[in-house]
Design a protein around this nucleic acid. Structure first.
Lengths: 160, 160
DNA sequence: TCCGAGAAGTTGATAAGTCAACTTTAGAGG
DNA sequence: CCTCTAAAGTTGACTTATCAACTTCTCGGA
């Protein structure tokens, strides 16, 4: 800690952050404009869509998305109101145990995936050679490992 | 538009997004824990700090940050209340024309930059060989160019 | 000088995300 | 069968972000 970054390191960081921000904004707008959903809604929809039976446990959704569970809960409430998802198995109380796509949700996600995939390709993948892709993947995995090691290893030891 | 992604392309995308999310979360927490400020506050502080005279026009701040101007305005109001920034030149109405760091803001950002730089190094730069860094930089620049071309060129023509 | 268009900045309503506290459920141990 | 504990899920209050509408400035042309 308490060490400084060289100017070109700062510059790399800033450039990377800027690219991310622009990319996110562009993808968000595409989703909103073409399909009327937010990126958050899209994430929930595809996650459910990929699941076998198009439904899953709330907790598994939390893990897949990597969100706070309260965020998932609020999001599901809103999406239930919009008619995109529904409980597939109601617990004794008014509580969700399993949640799944409705016909509407299913239809929307199928459309949205196509458009979104196109945008991801256009903005993200097309600017990428295979070697670059490999680099990005490897480096992303390093970051993930470093911050969230596969299982109960300590976070900052080991790599000393 | 309307084309699909291969499984390994989706996987690259997911991995990259996950890495970003974890990295952001980690950096946010560091800033909050060690310096009591949010990432948004930090961004404003460093941007002003790097400016000559430690002050700038609101509109330039908007451009540098790449945020919506209303977001910047709200953020500045909060930060004025916390005593981090202040108007350096008051317009005729209660309006900000130029905004700058206060002594407090200046002190905080100096501390925070050190800690934050350390975290950026630890999580982001350390996992990077020089070639990887070059790749990431080049690719980030491509994304920026593609979405926000330097000056009034059309967004999607040209690269055909 | 006066007008009008557009830039610059603010505001308030609403949506989304975070945090901590709470309730219900499920399971292990007695 | 009971109880205790932890996990799962929800809730409400609070913070932050977005959107659209608004006000105020600036500046070029009649």
């Amino acid at each position: 800690m308490a060490e400084t970054l060289e100017p070109d390191e700062w510059d790399l960081w800033d450039t990377w952050m800027r690219a991310r921000r622009l990319l996110d904004r562009e993808l968000d707008r595409g989703l909103q404009r073409d399909h009327g959903i937010s990126k958050a809604e899209f994430s929930v929809l595809v996650t459910l869509w990929r699941a076998s039976g198009r439904e899953m446990r709330v907790g598994d959704l939390v893990d897949s998305l990597g969100w706070e569970k309260s965020r998932v809960s609020h999001q599901l409430t809103r999406m239930e109101n919009r008619g995109f998802v529904a409980q597939t198995q109601a617990g004794p109380s008014g509580r969700r145990t399993r949640i799944g796509l409705t016909a509407t949700g299913c239809r929307i996600v199928q459309d949205a995936v196509l458009g979104h995939a196109g945008n991801i390709r256009r903005y993200f993948l097309d600017s990428l050679t295979p070697e670059q892709a490999a680099t990005i993947r490897a480096w992303s995995e390093q970051i993930i490992d470093r911050i969230e090691p596969p299982h109960g290893e300590t976070t900052d030891a080991g790599a000393a």
